[in-house]
Amino acid sequence: LGCCDTKNRKTPYRLENPEIIASETVFSVSEVEALYELYKKISSAVVDDGLINKEEFQLALFKTNKKESIFAERVFNLFDTKNNGVLDFGEFARALSIFHPDAPLNEKIDFSFRLYDLKQQGYIGREEVKHMMLATLAESGMNLSDEVIENIIDKTFEEADTKHDGRIDKDEWESLVLQHPSLLKNMTLQYLRDITTTFPSFVFYSQVED
């Protein structure tokens, strides 16, 4: 049909109807419009094409495009549900909706599980955990011996891997985060509650009446 052929897209990117996005997320129409103000800022940082590429995403996260992070890459890929290397506003808004304080807990648990399931095998393996630990330690300049790292992973799997198969599956992940709610701290962004006051200029472009 060619309706979604983004590679050959000739027309400029058109903003998805805010009312549709609002109906599928926890955001109100005004919040979607305010979020669009943030989106415009991020998406025009490098190439002003109305889409967020990986470089612009990293720039917004770290204020530098020099930094590489396996986590930023993973988050970007999870946001990029159309899997075409860029984030359109619909993808951006729908993904951030999961981070809203009012978003259902199961969505946060599911997203965080997929985040840590780096290899997308349907479970979190020991190697993935070690890889992520090493990345975090390198990022923070913290030094832990291999013995200590292995010890932490052992303890974590002793607690999380209740089926003792060397993997943390989705059910085990759910039990673990319910025991340790702090593991989901990153999954809630208080900023999203105040998005209309952070970006009040949305009212000038609003398509809807109150």
Binding site: F62, Y116, V129, M132, M133, K155, H180, N186, T198
Partner: peptide, 26 residues
Amino acid sequence: TKPVTMNAFELISRSQGLNLSNLFEK
């Protein structure tokens, strides 16, 4: 020495790349 009690995911979740609040910083 103190026994290690930190969960691996607690440590990982401290990664800057997992802190999306930076997207909102001006």
